[in-house]
């Protein structure tokens, strides 16, 4: 049986919808990179960690499972503060490599804590209730309810981030700090408080993405961390580090590409092509889709 056009279209649709998760994580990477010109490699780990804390607290106190989607993001935001402190605040600002290595350390630290606490076995994660059962048909194409929920949720979160960045005092401070650090200080903008806000904001976003990723597959496992880290990073790089719309579009693109290759080449080869996409971009368009739109002085 060959692969028909409809199959390809269907896999692209599913992939792009799921790609909202990569878009959210890519957006988080890009926000932090935009603010500090540094990569926080522990970002996806603290996102998944937040989802774990949400699941843990909800299970421990027998809370309604929907609360995981509130507790998880808050926990991820708090974890992000810790990551900021150990990997960025306490390391001299000029030591870019130091922060990079420390955040990789934080990634594995969070992962190891999770493995230790769960004896290394995956946990069942609540699915998205009625959304998981819903399925819509449009002609020959089907739309999974949970993926549509993830997409809508992702778009709303992105909308909130864009609103915060472009229409609030905090957003003005964040953008000012990211563009011209010394001038931002001269304007009286508190740098560290602004950076912490960026980390918390990105952390909350990541917490949502972590919960959504776990909910869409119904299990949560530390094995999720590395693939989400890498794909979020690829989204941020392909989009152009620092570009918000770049990260969003690239995240959706990666979701589509990944699912397309899942269909035509199988699950074992799928990720190879995602990483090839990264190399293609790094060689042919190193600034990504939307990087460096205006050159800096």
């Amino acid at each position: 049986m060959g692969i028909g056009f409809i199959d390809i279209l269907q896999s692209l649709i599913d992939g792009i919808l799921f790609g909202s998760i990569y878009a959210l994580i890519g957006l988080g990477f890009t926000l932090i990179f935009g603010a500090m010109e540094k990569l926080n490699m522990a970002y996806a780990a603290s996102s998944i960690g937040g989802a774990y804390v949400g699941l843990g607290i909800a299970t421990l106190f027998s809370l309604p499972l929907v609360l995981i989607f509130f507790i998880g993001p808050i926990a991820a935001g708090l974890l992000s503060i810790l990551v900021y402190l150990v990997s960025f605040r306490l390391i001299p600002a000029s030591n870019h490599l130091g922060s990079l290595m420390a955040s990789i350390g934080a990634l594995f630290f969070i992962d190891e804590v999770i493995i230790h606490e769960t004896q290394g076995s995956p946990l069942t994660f609540p699915e998205l209730g009625i959304f998981s059962e819903a399925y819509f048909m449009l002609g020959d194409l089907g739309f999974r309810g949970d993926l549509i929920f993830i997409m809508i949720f992702g778009l709303v979160s992105m909308g909130v981030i864009i609103y915060l960045l472009y229409y609030t005092r905090l957003g003005l401070a964040t953008r000012a700090v990211s563009q011209q650090n010394i001038a931002a200080r001269l304007c009286g903008i508190p740098i560290h408080a602004t950076n912490i806000s960026t980390f918390v904001l990105a952390g909350i976003l990541g917490g949502f993405a972590g919960c959504l990723a776990a909910a869409s597959v119904g299990v949560i496992s530390p094995l999720l961390t590395i693939p989400i880290t890498i794909k979020g990073l690829v989204a941020a790089v392909i989009g152009g580090l620092g570009s918000i719309r770049g990260a969003i579009i690239a995240g959706l693109l990666i979701g589509g590409v990944e699912n397309f290759f899942l269909l035509v080449r199988g699950v074992n080869e799928r990720d190879i092509y995602v990483f090839l996409l990264l190399f293609v971009f790094l060689v042919l368009r190193p600034n990504g889709l939307f990087g460096n739109e205006i050159s800096r002085d």
């Binding site: 003005l172 953008r175 000012a176 563009q179 011209q180 010394i182 001038a183 205006i294 002085d297």
Partner: peptide, 9 residues
Amino acid sequence: ENRLIFPHL
């Protein structure tokens, strides 16, 4: 020195 304005604001 060199003004240091915010280029993307």
